[in-house]
Write a protein that binds this DNA or RNA. Structure first.
Lengths: 189, 189
DNA sequence: GACTTAATTTACATAGTGTTGGATAATCAA
DNA sequence: TTGATTATCCAACACTATGTAAATTAAGTC
């Protein structure tokens, strides 16, 4: 059932998109996003340049689609973590997220850790904003002087920014350690 | 003395650069940075396109130079605030910063609030990182379980991100209010 | 094996880049 | 004010990248 939902896509399409994406990630490891052209992506992917346009409007469009996929994945991971542990416990939730990121570190380091690709940060931020909004009441009860939307801005920015820095520095700490750090840093009394 | 330090620059140069910068800010208000070309900037500034290249290598170079100027300004503002109040009090320091940003909201909204111009975020982050490192010992004393570099990542990201969100939402709260919010949010016990 | 759809090839018009050499105009120094 | 200096302008150039079109080849589907 599950694999029929997306009514079977031609394997050639999957292959081409996969190769284009891998090529783009590779290039992003090597150069700034402004230096990347459709030419280069196609060449690296050993795909004809014209074929690129059969799949994406332009590079920006491609980045956005990849960012959407990333957001979906992150959402799914967080959902799954919650189900497995049957608790909205913040630390375990973060641990699930961080372990997913660590498992796909090559990708996330490029799109979040590196400079100059804001689409991914935007998408991830809106995922976090949604998640944080759900657990925000506690803060309001605890400290009524804190404006809830400011707290959401603060929390989501701190999360993304810290994770990005963690990736930029080649993850010097383990995922569980980072989850614990977040728990401590977010703790209000 | 002070004005002689930069050994008098030709007023034509100052004028040209000023017009180019204003044109770029205007364009950034109107469109994404990828859509901006040297052509457009020159046209908007009523400056010949060739003249652009007499001042900047390319658009990226121009953005970097503007980001450097911004970082200098922010640094200066924070220094001045500390001098005036003769105290490293966090809330007043932040208030000085936020008031400076509010006073130049048009500029900051474009370069920080809008999407897709990471250079400015980077530069501002490194300013904050420096500042936060100085006041980090207290946290270490208070809670020895928190890794100091993680705390720096967390703090700087939260600051920039919250300020950006504040600008993106057209500053619905006053600068003093935001300074107070930061003080509350950063408070650890 | 016939049908369908994806990818390739070649080609073209358009737009932007970065640099040149020479003319013009604004600033500076005497 | 004058003459020297230097910034800006103008026209032109080669080059790279973009995005699209039409016809051909190759791969996947039933």
């Amino acid at each position: 059932m599950a694999e029929n939902e997306k009514k079977r896509i031609d394997p050639r399409v999957l292959r081409t998109r996969q190769m284009l994406k891998e090529a783009l990630i590779e290039l992003l490891e090597e150069m700034d996003v402004e230096k990347i052209t459709v030419n280069r992506i196609a060449e690296r992917a050993t795909i004809n340049r014209v074929t690129f346009y059969l799949h994406y409007k332009d590079i920006q469009d491609m980045l956005e689609k990849m960012a959407d996929e990333m957001a979906e994945n992150v959402n799914r991971v967080m959902m799954r973590t919650i189900e497995q542990h049957k608790s909205g416990d913040r630390e375990t939730l973060l641990l699930g997220l961080l372990e997913h990121i660590a498992a796909n570190a090559k990708f996330y380091k490029v799109v979040l850790g590196s400079r100059r690709i804001p689409v991914f940060h935007e998408r991830l931020r809106s995922v976090f904003v949604d998640k944080i909004k759900l657990g925000i009441e506690e803060i309001e009860e605890h400290n009524p002087d804190i404006q809830s939307d400011v707290a959401v801005w603060f929390g989501s920015a701190a999360l993304i920014g810290t994770i990005s820095a963690w990736l930029r520095n080649d993850m010097p700490y383990t995922a569980p350690f980072m989850a614990r750090q977040f728990a401590l840093l977010f703790k209000q009394r």
